[in-house]
Design a protein around this nucleic acid. Structure first.
Length: 303
DNA sequence: GTTGAGCGTT
């Protein structure tokens, strides 16, 4: 069995994507997750019983049912579909967050007509959902609009919908985007990187990547050399990283402890950037920081 | 009194 592709889809009715197998006929979970970030497994509909069946997953490797992938379309499993142990609830909710339940943030509205008022904005955006706040940015002296403003919705779904389309406001096409401005008080600085304590020397970056993939897209794994019994894992989504902090996870039978990765202190540019957010680099109010610091100082200096 | 890609006085 070699150079095989199996068809995988997000949902039974979605268009499948072909995923390559390994030489031994297995499929790596990482191959699936490369196309479907956050995927933690596969399932398929058994043609005989018409029931959904799970695909065997061992150490990040998916095994063909009856040693033959056949011509079926396999469906991606995400962690939120799994029954989870209590101590994994935080991680599961992290994925829920990743899959839609998120705090809203201010959106910048670009291209407003000069005449558009805040009331106009509110009237327009209320047609999409409940509006918390609108602003039109103006010249302080003249009071003239600068042609852009901000809006914030109650529901995250509304925000998603509004970002996805263009808007005709008072006769001009406008765009709503996530601002690239600095993290404000409503959007605290959050690391996408976690500190993985109590690692053993036989854990490889690949294995850590395979393991943490189940919680969300992993963008980096770093194991300091020489061996220092900890590692760093960076996720694409900071909320996944944050939700894992404080967890004790079992990797290769070993209980590792997850905590916040302290920002590096040997980079002047980062120090400058973090200055805006306070001395620690993170916003106040993170109860888990203490445990995190203890861990870091106990093990080693972050470098 | 103008303008048309951008990024928010408090």
């Amino acid at each position: 069995m070699s150079e095989l592709y199996i068809r995988v889809a997000e949902d039974e009715n979605e268009e499948p994507m072909e995923i390559p197998s390994e030489d031994d006929g297995t499929i790596l979970l990482s191959s699936v997750a490369a196309q479907f970030p956050g995927a933690c497994g596969l399932r398929y509909r058994n043609p005989e019983s018409q029931c959904m069946r799970g695909v065997r997953l061992v150490e990040g490797v998916l095994h063909a049912p009856e040693n033959d992938w056949g011509n079926l379309v396999y469906v991606v499993n995400y962690p939120k579909d799994n029954k989870r142990k209590m101590d994994e609830i935080d991680a599961a909710s992290a994925v829920k967050v990743k899959r839609g339940f998120q705090k809203t943030s201010d959106l910048i509205v670009l291209g407003l007509p000069w005449k558009t008022s805040e009331q106009d904005l509110k009237d327009y955006f209320t047609t999409f959902g409940e509006v918390i706040m609108v602003q039109v940015k103006r010249d302080l002296k003249t009071g003239n609009s600068k042609g852009f403003g901000f809006v914030r919705f109650t529901e995250y779904e509304t925000q998603t919908k509004v970002i996805a389309q263009r808007h005709m406001i008072d006769g001009r096409w406008c765009d709503c985007k996530l601002p690239n401005s600095k993290a404000g008080p409503d959007e605290p600085m959050r690391s996408r990187k976690i500190f993985v304590g109590r690692c053993t020397e036989d854990m490889t970056t690949d294995e850590l990547r395979q393991y943490f993939m189940q919680y969300g897209e992993v963008t980096d794994v770093f194991i300091p050399k020489p061996f220092r019994a900890f590692a760093f894992v960076t996720f694409a989504d900071d909320q996944v990283a944050q939700a894992l902090c404080g967890e004790d996870l079992i990797i290769k039978g070993i209980s590792v402890h997850i905590s916040n990765a302290e920002p590096k202190h040997n980079n002047s540019r980062q120090m400058m950037d973090r200055g805006r957010f306070g001395a620690g680099g993170f916003s106040q109010g993170y109860g888990k920081m203490t445990a995190c610091k203890i861990n870091i100082y106990k093990h080693a200096r972050v470098s």
